[in-house]
Design a protein around this nucleic acid. Structure first.
Length: 594
RNA sequence: GGAACCGUGGUGUAGUUGGUCUAACACGCCGGCCUGUCACGCCGGAGAUCGCGGGUUCGAGUCCCGUCGGUUCCGCCA
């Protein structure tokens, strides 16, 4: 049905007879002459219907409408001088049509399938996703996605990795995200869980001697959605034997550099800088710092420790800290604008936001000025390297709250003050993560990464004495303030794994029940191993400069995990439920009546 | 579980404090004219009980409550 793609026609094809198939992108009817922009995946070509060339084709062309599907044949000609269209790659030529076959008519689409559709309500576009997909901007991200996975497979293949599939029907494990469950018909009352990640399988592949594994694999987490979180998403999943942290990091830097070079033509400088978790939290108030701009958090505890402002001194007396950021240029903002900044930090637990606006000659405008001695204020300004028009924002609280609220305020200023250069790709490895984090709700420690992460050798014996101080052999790759993925060197020794389980409050009995097969496997000569997983959807989102991973997935779900096109999820027949021995609770039955 | 924002012809928007709103504009759609357009042009036309339900009021697109859908965020996401 085609000899050429619409988008590939060039001057070199002039004089050739071609057959094209595609959609009517636009029709321009001049009465005695009709132009049609014919579109396929490869682009757009102008085809011309002239009654002097073919009255029969011309008659058909008069009835064409947007999105009609046609096949046309004719001769490629160079456009008349002055009639070229420089906006079109095919703009120097056009095809004079003498045969046309109407393959299918089309209803008028519910929205116009051009760039203007970016403004159309996403709800409508998701209901007609198959129409939205015809648009160039969406096709571009899917093409990029293909190129990225292709480059990824090539890279791993070149380094003798094996792509190995792991089960989708798996088992629910404690900890981690909520599982998607699949009822078993054969085992009434029992459920499979869809994998949150193939974590244990890939470790067992290492026990199985496969040495180098990767998989581009779907993962499922039944948690609430965000712009960068879908209930099903894709990971580039990797595991290697006989490696340490440095090996995995270096290897993945090679992948990133290779993929960016081959798909975007962007050179990623390796090695990618590394930053400890402690440093990231302290300087940027985030475990995924956006390094496209500076604006660091500065500890001013020492400067204000004896000042007259009780809020600061009380916090410091109770083990808190006082930190500040210096927003260049925001010192000129109105009182009203500055006062609204407090709304940025209160959702993260900050009880308030103190600020100092710096004017010409370093005179200050601030509600807390009266609590500070002149020399304290001078020291503060010097610590913050204050200049005219600066706005110094201060939060005093527990370290965690200070970090999070000032970290968010930093991002807010980065956006508001235009500090972010969108064209950049700023990578950073965050390393030396804590192994465990204390959960105030349960009064227990839980795994910060996952319970198979190896402690640093030198911290191993803190596991029982000071669990919060143990650092992990874990690493996250961060790009432009987004967590691209993370991994770790794993525990490969039964006794260490048992100590880890105990540290997170799992009894030996529970550990054996849930992970006995893993503990047993560790007794059969398990090699040291480690790995990582990258979020493919997020990677594409960042590479394509999109704000949502929905733009990088062919058929994404809405915030309440629904599919507006398929109307999934949906009710099932009573018979299906009977086979599964499942009976709906009363509230589920009522909710389903619609 | 919580907070905020959005919902007006097919699409995108306008609609000031409730009152010629008998709902406007652009695009699209339909019909007519047009042989060099390329977001073609010109002329004409159709198309909306303002998401849904209640309330306040003499009067609601506009105010209030609820509900549905969507988005962003908090919690959650080892």
């Amino acid at each position: 049905m085609r000899s050429h793609a619409c988008g590939e026609l060039r001057l070199e094809h002039v004089g050739q007879r071609v057959q094209l198939s595609g959609w009517v992108n636009r029709r321009r009817d001049h009465g005695g002459l009709i132009f049609v922009d014919l579109r396929d995946r490869w682009g757009v070509a102008q085809v011309v219907f002239n009654p002097e060339v073919s009255m029969e084709s011309f008659k058909v062309a008069e009835s064409l409408r947007s999105e009609y599907v046609i096949t046309v044949e004719g001769e490629v000609r160079r456009r008349l001088p002055g009639m070229e269209n420089p906006n079109l790659l095919t703009g120097e030529v056009e095809v004079y049509i003498d045969r046309i076959t109407l393959r299918n008519e089309a209803k008028t689409p519910p929205f116009q399938l051009d760039d203007r559709a970016d403004e159309v309500d996403e709800m409508l576009r998701l209901r007609y996703r198959y129409l939205d997909l015809r648009r160039q901007s969406l096709q571009e991200t899917l093409i990029l996605r293909h190129k990225v996975t292709k480059a990824t497979r090539d890279y791993f293949d070149k380094h003798s990795f094996l792509e190995i599939e792991t089960p989708m029907l798996s088992k629910s494990t404690p900890e981690g995200a909520r599982d998607y469950l699949v009822p078993s018909r054969v085992h009434p009352g029992e459920f499979y869980a869809l994998p949150q990640s193939p974590q244990i399988y890939k470790q067992l592949l290492m026990v199985g001697g496969l040495e180098r594994y990767f998989q581009i694999v779907r993962c499922f987490r039944d948690e609430d959605l965000r712009a960068d979180r879908q209930p099903e998403f894709t990971q580039i999943d990797v595991e290697m034997s006989f490696v340490d942290e440095n090996d995995v990091i270096t290897f993945m830097e090679g992948l990133v550099a290779d993929v960016f070079a081959k798909t975007l033509g962007v050179e990623v400088t390796v090695p990618i800088p590394r930053m400890s978790y402690a440093e990231a939290m302290s300087a940027y108030g985030s475990d995924k710092p956006d390094l496209r701009f500076d604006l660091p958090l500065v500890d001013i505890s020492a400067v204000v420790k004896d000042c007259g402002f009780k809020v600061f001194t009380d916090v410091l007396r109770h083990g808190g800290q006082v930190k500040a950021i210096n927003a260049k240029g925001a010192g000129k903002w109105s009182r009203r604008e500055i006062d609204q900044l407090v709304d940025v930090v209160t959702p993260y637990g900050a009880k308030g936001l103190a600020w100092i606006a710096v004017g010409e000659g370093l005179e200050v405008r601030s509600a807390i000025a009266k609590f500070l001695q002149p020399e304290e204020m001078a020291a503060l300004l010097q610590t913050m390297q204050a200049e005219p028009d600066d706005l110094i924002c201060i939060v005093a609280d527990k370290p965690q709250i200070v970090a999070e609220s000032l970290g968010r305020l930093r991002l807010y200023f980065g956006d508001r003050l235009g500090l972010i250069d969108d064209s950049q790709f700023k990578f950073v490895w965050v390393v030396d993560w804590p192994l465990l984090e204390y959960d105030e709700a349960t009064g227990r420690y839980s795994a910060a990464h996952h319970p198979f992460t190896s402690p640093k050798d030198e911290d191993l014996d803190l596991l029982e004495t000071a669990p919060g101080k143990v650092r992990a052999k874990a690493y996250d790759l961060v790009l432009n303030g987004v967590e691209l993925g993370g991994g770790s060197i794993r525990i490969h020794n039964r006794s260490v794994q048992e100590r880890m389980f105990r540290a997170i409050g799992l009894s030996d009995e529970q550990a054996r029940e849930k992970f006995g097969f893993l503990l047993e496997a560790f007794e059969y000569g398990t090699p040291p191993h480690g790995g990582i997983a990258f979020g493919l959807d997020r990677l594409i989102m960042l590479m394509a400069k999109r704000d949502s991973i929905r733009d990088c997935i062919a058929f994404p779900k809405t915030q309440n995990a629904g599919d507006l096109m398929m109307q999934a999820p949906g009710r099932v027949d009573d018979e299906q439920l009977r086979e599964l021995r499942i009976r709906l609770a009363a509230e589920a039955r009522v909710a389903g009546q619609s």
